[in-house]
Design a protein around this nucleic acid. Sequence first.
RNA 1: GGGAGCUUAGCUCAGCUGGUUCAGAGCAUCUGCCUUACAAGCAGAGGGUCACUGGUUCGACUCCAGUAGCUCCCACCA
Length: 882
Amino acid sequence: MELSKNFDHRSAEEKWYRHWLEKKYFESNPDNREPYTIVMPPPNVTGILHMGHCLNNTIQDILIRRARTLGKNACWVPGTDHASIATEAKVVQMLREKGIQKASLSREEFLKYAWEWKEKYGGIILEQLKKLGCSADWSRTTFTMDDHYYQSVIDVFIDLYNKGYIYRGKRMINWDPKAKTALSDEEVIRKEVQSKLYYVKYFIDNNSGTGNEFITIATVRPETILGDTAIAVHPADERYKHLHGKFAFVPLINRRIPIITDEYVEMDFGTGALKITPAHDKNDYQIGQKHGLKVIDVLNDDGTMSEAALLYVGEDRFAVRKKIVKNLEENGFIEKIENYTNQVGFSERTDVVIEDRLSLQWWVDMKKIYSPALQAVLENEIKFYPAKFKNLYRNWMENIKDWCISRQLWWGQRIPAWYDEEGRFVVAKNEEEAKKIFQAQYSIANAQLKQDDDVLDTWFSSWLWPIEVFKGYSNPNNKDINYYYPTNTLVTAPEIIFFWVARMIMAGFEYKKQKPFGEVYFTGIVRDELGRKMSKQLGNSPDLLALIDKYGADAVRFGIMISSPAGNDLLFDVKEESTLKQGSFFINKIWNALKLVKMWSEKRSADISNQSAIFAVDWFENRLNEVKEELENLYTDFRLSEALKTIYSLIWDDFCSWYLEWIKPGFDEKIDSVVYEKTIGFFEELMQLLHPFMPFVTEEIYHQLKERKQGNDLIVAQISKAAIANKSFLAQAAFLKNAITAIRDARNKNQLKPKDTIALFIQTSQKEIFKNLQNILVKQVNADKFDFVDSAVANSITVVAGKEKFYLVTNKETDSTAQKNQLEKDLEYLNGFLASIEKKLSNERFVKNAKPEIVQAEQKKKADAEAKIKAIKESLKELENK
RNA sequence: GGGAGCUUAGCUCAGCUGGUUCAGAGCAUCUGCCUUACAAGCAGAGGGUCACUGGUUCGACUCCAGUAGCUCCCACCA
């Protein structure tokens, strides 16, 4: 069949992905081979593909495909996360658009809508990953709310509760007034914002009501004044000593509050006087506890003012801030207002300002379970790439705080706690169990019990991921979990090191007594060409599916991988799409090489006569081995970007630019069939090396190169072990390339056109080597005559490459000053080089202290430099004589 | 406030255990080519006091200290 002019990515991607699926190449089952396992970080079930997923999953696919070619039993488990806050928010939004308020629905009705939504839109992202070429075992797709998974999460909760690791407690939590739920500390993002610092006067009670004396406090949140229950000053602060034990009045509402002393107060910040609002600030709460202050919660759960605020009831907190400032000003309570920059917490999911709020929630006592997880990383039982994340991890683990795991949502695993009317509770699998336990515990039969309304934090389910995707918790010691666990590599973003990675390690040790994975590869953050993080808000994330359609999945994968060094951020030029273009140019290049080689299949001859071609084959074989070894090291260190660059250069430079040109038969010539077969073999190996990065085009070319038997597909073809490269072939080729480049340069500098032929003469002491290479040399520099000489050739252009001298004779006018300049420049460099070596060698301390092999190397450098200098000097002399 | 990291060609980055045939790659730039695989290409070229200042060493882009700038993470100064 005639080869198409270009690679058609659309049809090839369709064809091969379907073929791979049909052949079940992605599916894995336990067998005698060594497993290589990756669990995919589950994307949000309602998510759509963005750059981060693309990077992440391309890397995983590369590792999985590489493992497959190395003969391992590669298993990549995909799935999705129920993502309670994000998904619930989307469903609420969808309902609102339909005119339905969540509040008007029962829990069951709401969940019905949510499941419908999940069935409809859930898993779109997995389909998109297929377009990218991901070779995950789709038959193992798991969802964090699958029955077995849901039940495992519940059982884990019960287990931890029974061990005393989970408790229920009233604490200050982070409250998201939009999602109306508690958040863990990790879900709060601190941002620097421009605020105002308001200096507010509180008049002192002079025992007969308000006097003229006042104390000024500074606050950025004047609306919380309404919840103030004290003013605190530092006990040693001379300015306020006379006020100790006195009372002041809260402006506008005239609540009488005590002036207390506490060393927590910084004397030199603001006025040195601090208003205490125990209901709305973590620190104030602590001080309040200490001093037995009242807690007045002035906010509702949606961020509006509560009845307790007395003023502005029902109005939004930010509107109230403006109003109360105006009101305070009008009544003379504001002393001054300053601009002020401070850190404010925002919700990771809804991006609204978080409120500190006192609330009864469920917590995991992290101190009880973190220790083996810390050890494992510190002792490199689990290796982090790049290693710098070890410190980060350690720091967080050593200062770990309890984990708030309850969320005031419906979408998720419902907390298995049951309460009676008096608030007494038990934790149990179901109502029946709960009743039994309740009876045993409180000696009350047939109590009316009601289940907790809240669900668990999503991460409380995803921390079981590496275990429960193999049903390792719900069905312990099954064949899969025993075979695949611990998994090999986790590929994830550094942003979720605490959310997820750390907690998975804890769960792994708690429930499998073993680490969940051996190595963690943290990818970089994808940024745009201006260095901004790609995000939905900025709208700077490109439409990946459109890019895949335009450039092909291979080019997209290339574009992402070529610009992402391990652990560094990745700058992805969306505007120019430059790396994508580079990727599709590369595909085009390989395709053209295929066309060239295919053309030769008609020109084969059994006659092995071309020594130069044989040399080229020997060289390339060794070069290939050299690169294969390099690649092994690069993969071990997860330096995938460099691995791709190495393969890219091997194919483009070594194979296309040098090798194919060297063996290319002339116009009417034939190609030795041995050389031809070898070349097809090389091409195959190159495709194999490239396959993990660019699976589609490589599979297509693999099949174009030769007729393949059923089941002989590149995706499962085994890579042969690298042999040790023969250095002498490599050195000879380097020397040959060097000579060719020098001669071509000389041709250019003398304004010879590519079509102009030359006569080439070589003055060398290594004639034997050149006899082997002469066909290549002559063709590559467009010479029509070639010979060896023992002295300079008259009227020629002299080129000195290494110790050899080349003379180019042409009928064109040549400019000897250019040559002279070039030679003089080289000479100058070499003289400087030689001088530095001589200086070094004449330094006694160097000769005495340096390693012998280094000294030897320096001596060789010296000899080489001297030989070159001699050759150049001779040539310069000859030029003078002309 | 604490911690980590970065600073090498116009841009994006390599440079692992210190030794001027390692100062490199890709893109961009310049020159010449529509050569029968590829102009989405070919052949060549130019371009860097390796942030700054000291120190260790026979020798430092590479190790150490400090300075400056940038980035990220953690942290309850209102």
